[in-house]
Design a binder for these strands. Structure first.
Lengths: 211, 211
DNA sequence: GTCTATAAAGAGATAGAC
DNA sequence: GTCTATCTCTTTATAGAC
């Protein structure tokens, strides 16, 4: 899909994405959005009531897009792991490790995710629905994927798979917030494998011992 | 310490704290800082070069203050738990649970921590030193406290206590980000005890099984 | 140091021509 | 729908009096 086929509205949303992700809500001017989109400011206002509506429309669109991508990915992850259904703890470990590393990989590959999360955290105080929408559409789905994956292994009799899913996802998200968003790589470095190995160990070890 | 004994500079920093925490960096005007501090704008500029320097000075001061409080707290936590040095896994569980719950409690008690973390995440892209300072002065210390606490229990032969400390702290921080900052309480609720119990179980269970 | 007043630039939003 | 030009208010920052 080339730039020349963009409608004005798509161009505006694309320009808005770039500006809002880079400068935040208050730090973004409608002038910059317009010039980044290659249209006039009046055109922006002919498509979107005001700055706030543009912002919300942008976040909604972005969340929806990412959700589609994410759903595709998690489908893949599940089916990749489902043909290994011999359910040894070794395979569970491999599966969990793969899921964790691919989560980390996906975030470092995608140039938009980190600034988007930054914006989400920054503005969910003033725009509470931003956080809620993200959580119900993205986070909850991610938690369910992990939770069901954990529950599907009979050896792993977890008391509370939903809570463990939060721990699993939370450890990884926090790791990325610290390492990437707060520049922890430079001041408190830790290789992804170290975190992931310990995480998978904590979740799976008890199953090994009960064997 | 009453308001009347504040120097102008202290008053400015206090006003700046309120405004920046509530409206973010770009969303805060020097006019509002001045009026919130009860001084004129020119006075603000006589103490601080410009908005950026004021902001950085504020964050540094706040980080230093909190660090002092935090160091006091973690001293307490450690000594509270050190007289229980009979090191049964039951006591380890109790100690970890207490640490986790007091972390969560502390955050919900303190009206400044959440907005501060929001601001930190929001602005550490444009001000990388914000994140780095926070991590070296606060996060790293917190991780070390947990890490040393974990290492101090002989039954718990963790391969990598530092990584486990990240998982421990990360799960809790992520939980608070989701529940409090992104308003997860209202859309994907989960009681603190559920998370903490599972977390402590994951960390300690393997020690129980090796007993 | 501290104030009032103001300069100079940038912001959100709209009018009016095409 | 789309543009240029503009209105109006707010912003950062400073000049000058006390």
């Amino acid at each position: 899909m080339s730039t020349s086929t963009l409608t004005k509205e798509e161009a505006i949303l694309r320009g808005a994405l770039q500006e809002f992700l880079e400068h935040g809500y208050a730090g973004t001017s409608m002038d910059k959005v317009a010039s980044s989109a290659g249209v006039s400011k009046a055109t922006v206002y002919s498509h979107f009531q005001d700055k706030e509506h543009l912002f919300i429309a942008l976040i909604d669109q972005f969340t929806e897009q990412r959700m589609a991508v994410f759903l595709g990915l998690s489908q893949d992850s599940i089916s990749e792991n489902q043909f290994q259904e011999a359910n040894s703890t070794h395979e569970l470990k491999t599966g969990l490790k793969q899921i964790a590393l691919s989560m980390i990989h996906e975030v470092s590959e995608d140039e938009f995710i980190l600034p988007f999360m930054r914006l989400l955290v920054a503005e969910s105080g003033r725009f509470p629905n931003l956080g809620k929408t993200f959580l119900t559409h993205m986070e909850l789905r991610g938690l369910n994927v992990i939770s069901e994956y954990l529950s599907s292994y009979p050896h792993l009799k977890l008391k509370d798979p939903e809570a463990v899913a939060r721990i699993f996802v939370g450890s990884l998200v926090h790791y990325m917030i610290v390492q990437e968003m707060l520049h922890g790589k430079e001041v408190i470095p830790m290789e992804p494998e170290r975190l992931v190995d310990s995480l998978v160990d904590l979740v799976v070890t008890q199953a090994e011992n009960k064997k």
